[in-house]
Design a protein around this nucleic acid. Structure first.
Length: 948
RNA sequence: GCGGAUAUGGCGUAAUUGGUAGCCGCGCCAGACUUAGGAUCUGGUUCUUCACGGAGUGGGGGUUCGAGUCCCCCUAUCCGCACCA
């Protein structure tokens, strides 16, 4: 009987489902292992071909670990909230819950066909109230905690309040806690909460009534609709992820991730060490401007005169400062600008503020700025330094103000050149030979060299000068050593419908969280998914959706004039909210008392292996680490890092095929290698499903589209050869390969093996089915091998081969090298098929080895070999080292380093035997020349290196 | 511009981690079987050469008895960040 995957695969998929083969329990004598995939967003297009790659790899590993005797947690779920379902809802009126449900069912169907060993009883969906209850709960915790910089962890905000009340902690700012009213106190606490409301500059589109992400805005117009977009300060929820910046950097040391991914995260967090320095203002203190400067007088370092703070990573260059620059958003601009410059400065600030992020990025090289007419004093040199405004200084980083050292910073250099400001050299690689900086074409940014023209640090190495200057400014009380991070707080509100509602209501404009027992706050039904006419987010359509404080419940259609009923937050949470803690929920998915139980998390700890795309490096993987660290601080999570080992599966690109249409004759198509084809034809994308190994199926092509019905061809060797190119996988390029088609044609086992055979899991590669036949042939051979097997005892050659295969496959899986595993299987089967008959003693262990890769065929053979339990309950075969050794090897022999001859030796030979063999050899005698070898370097199977 | 990675036959890749480069598969060539084949089997396939031989892991240098592998300098491609002081 032939290998009939059509019969085998559904049979065992049903068997596994009925027998709950992959059910996983939270207690076991076995060691535990948690294998996790990044859960998919169920898009309408179905499972995308890149997804199975990672799922197959993790499934192989999960199955392998089970066979090695581990209790394996291998769950799957859906990141079900998201924009596409909502956009579809706006266009069609179809509720996103319905489309999402439909897409999930389609995903599930596709996943089931591939034979994954997920424990579906643990499935989570981010849009399920039983799940998002805990997303909301975590938000409430974030709101109720602050970051204690002393203890370096999150603590309840109530403890901060206690300290403020007792006066052990003074308030920052002009008012003391005791003097504040309730509203002021809430406002003050908002500066500390880990989830907080604050005014943040956003891209606001008035026509669409929503905030847009930077990539949704082009040239100041919305991508959708082309409406004008303005930068606007808006009150938005944010997560104070920046408080965790240092711990997010430090944590990278202890995880087993690729260096490149760690590096991406390090860059994203952007830690840089430097100094904060206060520059006093040199202005006349008159009654007009004095109130505005109060904050600059009282705040921070105790300065008797108004000063402003800058951040620099190059304190050593402070003697080279020739101007200062403030960002256009800096509140000091308004105060210090001299009257005669005011009009010019205001015009510039208005222009700069209205530029979109995109415009700003596109015109990075354009220098713009304006002089305020005001001056600062360099605290070390006491020079007067002009203060400028320019948008090359960003408000979101440092203090939004810099000291400019044009000689040693390329941006300051460009600015100085443009406005003809002085450039003063204070660092030189060769202090003896200074050149005139006004002749330079670029700044000297390097940190190697010596300080020059720099007062007391002149002559020091840059590194020493940095330390010396910081010491000096600390001593003078005008600054201090500090660290800055590029990481910004995460904006957490979206004016969308299809997301988690915030468990927040507003009382006198102040946000309060709902009590825990009232969670989840259900997403209300709305009549429309667009923003309301008054510009509220879609949740504004929920009629009088509100919190009834007296009855402690959420109400709708109520009279809002009731004084105990308060409006609820109308924004929803962003996509990363639901995905930041899902791996913890899988540990205990049905718990309705807690996010997850202490027992569950103590048992599973954290994810041992996480497989997913590197595109989440600066999104999900940062947020999830933050989320986990917070849960760790409040005693829920038991590990600082959620994902111990991470494997990034490579991106799958598309391999497009082309036909070449003649420029003269629209019905004539030339095969790729016909002379003159390049000049006389235009390439046209052709559906890859009617091309096999770059050979076009001519009949299918004629049927493909009416315009090709009468196509004629110039063939080569009777075939039409198509061209190809690696491109992004997309419908419009007809290069999307649907996994379903391949399963139908070759079976899931072949697809699984083939995806692994393509190349290393981590590597990006084009999708290409050219080699799938070879893998399919292998499975047919494996089947044949089983059919040829008999109960006769195994011969020693076969046994040896089997042991070698066990070792190789085991090693390959451990180091995640599945492509070489497939090769190993092929070699083994080809060797065994050359024999008349093969013992079932050999076939059975090979079947178990194959089970992680091709579970259906392995299950079928395992049962046919007489077992009535699943191959998943089998024991991974072990190997005997003695069986691996080759009998004889040819060794290259060298004397004093020179290669002389080769020698045959048994692999098990000892040093003495090796020396004896050399002595016995005629050439050996000649080179030894009667002398005894001093030392012999003898590596089995490698080399004999003899030192006389 | 900064940071990270990669580079091996016609193609995807492999190399016991410093030890005979090209395993395995695709494709191709030749042959067998077959009414037929998108089936199966056998042999060959880095380049060059009739052959003997020679060359060869993006290019150039170095370390080593020995380098695809380690070091330095280029080049190309891919990815991430991008006025982050």
């Amino acid at each position: 009987m032939d290998y009939n995957f059509n019969e085998i695969e559904p049979k065992w998929q049903n068997y596994w489902r009925e027998h709950h083969t992959y059910r996983c329990v939270n207690q076991s004598d076995k060691p535990h292992y948690y294998v996790l995939d990044m859960f998919p967003y169920p898009s309408g297009a179905g499972l995308h071909v890149g997804h199975p790659l990672g799922y197959i790899a993790s499934d192989i590993f999960a199955r392998y670990k089970r066979l090695r005797g581990f209790n394996v947690l291998h769950p799957m779920g859906y990141d079900a909230y998201g924009l596409p379902a909502e956009q579809y809802a706006i266009q069609t009126g179809q509720h996103p819950a319905i489309t999402t449900e439909r897409n999930i069912n389609r995903y599930r169907e596709q996943l089931d066909k591939l034979g994954f060993s997920f424990d579906w009883e643990r499935e989570v969906r981010t849009c399920d109230p039983q799940y998002y209850k805990w997303t909301q709960w975590t938000f409430v915790q974030l709101f109720n905690h602050y970051y204690d910089k002393e203890l370096d962890k999150a603590r309840p905000i109530s403890e901060l309040v206690k300290q403020l009340e007792s006066g052990t902690l003074p308030t920052e700012g002009d008012k003391r806690w005791a003097e504040m009213n309730e509203g002021e106190r809430q406002d003050y606490l908002m500066n500390f909460r880990l989830a907080y409301l604050a005014d943040i500059p956003v891209n606001w589109c008035p026509e669409l009534g929503t905030v847009l992400a930077n990539d949704e805005v082009v040239n100041g117009l919305s991508v959708r609709g082309g409406y004008p977009v303005e930068r606007k300060l808006m009150r938005q929820w944010s997560l104070r992820i920046s408080a965790y910046a240092q711990r997010l950097v430090d944590g990278l040391e202890e995880v087993d991730w690729s260096d490149s991914l760690k590096e991406i995260q390090r860059n994203w967090i952007g830690r840089s060490e430097g100094a904060a320095v206060w520059f006093p203002l040199d202005i006349k203190l008159n009654a007009d401007i004095l109130p505005g400067l109060q904050a600059y007088i009282n705040q921070g370092e105790p300065q008797p005169v108004p000063s402003f703070e800058i951040f620099t990573t190059r304190p050593d260059t402070i003697y080279g400062v020739t101007f200062m620059v403030l960002c256009p958003e800096h509140e000091l601009i308004d105060i210090i600008t001299v009257p005669e410059k005011r009009a010019e400065v205001e015009a510039y600030v208005t222009w700069a503020k209205n530029r979109s992020e995109r415009e700003r990025q596109a015109e990075v090289k354009k220098v713009s700025g304006v002089f305020t007419g005001a001056y600062a004093i360099n605290p070390l040199t006491e020079e007067r330094i002009p203060i400028w405004v320019s948008d090359y200084v960003l408000s979101g980083y440092g203090t939004g103000a810099i000291m400019a050292v044009p000689a040693h910073d390329s941006r300051d250099f460009a600015f100085a050149r443009h406005f003809n400001l002085p450039i003063r050299q204070v660092v030189a690689t060769d202090p003896q030979n200074l050149t005139d900086p006004s002749t330079w074409t670029e700044s000297l940014d390097s940190k190697t060299g010596y300080s020059v023209n720099s007062g007391f640090v002149s002559g020091m190495k840059v590194k020493d000068a940095m330390a010396a200057v910081i010491d000096k400014i600390e001593e003078m009380g005008v600054g201090h050593r500090t660290v800055n991070y590029r990481l910004r707080d995460a904006i957490f509100s979206r004016q969308r419908y299809w997301g988690e509602p915030f468990p927040v209501y507003y009382k006198n404009g102040c946000p309060f969280t709902l009590p825990e027992e009232c969670l989840p706050l259900l997403l209300p039904e709305v009549s429309e998914f667009k923003p309301t006419a008054t510009g509220e987010p879609p949740l504004g359509h929920a009629t009088r959706w509100a919190w009834d404080e007296k009855n402690r419940c959420v109400v709708e259609n109520t009279k809002i004039d009731d004084i105990t009923v308060f409006p609820l937050e109308l924004s929803t949470m962003p996509g990363f909210a639901g995905s930041s803690g899902y791996y913890l929920r899988y540990m205990d998915p049905h718990n309705d008392q807690a996010y997850f139980s202490a027992e569950a998390v103590n048992y599973w700890q954290n994810v041992d292996l996480y497989v997913g795309g590197a595109e989440h490096a600066t999104g999900h993987l940062i947020y999830a680490r933050f989320w986990n660290k917070f849960l760790f601080d409040i005693g829920l999570s038991v590990k600082q890092e959620p994902f111990r080992k991470l494997v990034n599966q490579g991106m799958i690109q598309g391999r497009s095929n082309f036909v070449y249409r003649s420029k003269e004759d629209n019905n004539l198509f030339l095969s790729k290698n016909i002379p003159g084809r390049e000049e006389n034809t235009v390439p046209i994308h052709v559906d890859i499903n009617i091309v096999n190994n770059d050979i076009l199926d001519i009949e299918k092509f004629r049927q493909w589209r009416p315009e090709f019905a009468h196509a004629r061809f110039q063939l080569e060797d009777g075939k039409y050869i198509c061209g190809w190119e690696i491109e992004k996988m997309s419908k419009s390029m007809f290069n999307v390969q649907n996994p379903d088609d391949l399963v139908a044609r070759y079976g899931a086992d072949t697809l699984r093996l083939y995806e692994m055979f393509l190349g290393p899991v981590e590597q990006a590669k084009p999708w290409d089915t050219n080699g799938i036949e070879g893998v399919f042939r292998f499975l047919k051979k494996f089947w044949k091998l089983f059919e040829n097997s008999s109960d006769t005892p195994a011969d020693s050659a076969s046994l040896k081969l089997m042991h070698q295969t066990v070792k190789k496959i085991t090693d390959d899986i451990e180091r995640f090298s599945f492509n070489t595993s497939v090769s190993t299987f092929m070699i083994c089967v080809n060797d065994l098929l050359a024999k008349q008959t093969v013992s079932t003693q050999i076939v059975e262990p090979l079947t178990i080895l194959l089970a992680p890769f091709a579970p259906h065929i392995a299950e079928e053979i395992y049962h046919r070999l007489g077992h009535n339990t699943s191959v998943c309950q089998a024991v991974w075969p072990s190997y005997d080292e003695k069986m691996l050794v080759e009998d004889n090897f040819t060794y290259p022999v060298t004397f004093n380093g020179k290669m002389r001859f080769t020698l045959d030796l048994p692999a098990t030979a000892s040093q003495q035997e090796a020396i004896a063999a050399v002595k016995a050899d005629r050439r050996g005698q000649k080179w030894l020349d009667g002398k005894e070898p001093k030392r012999i370097i003898f590596v089995p199977n490698k080399i004999i290196n003899i030192v006389i």
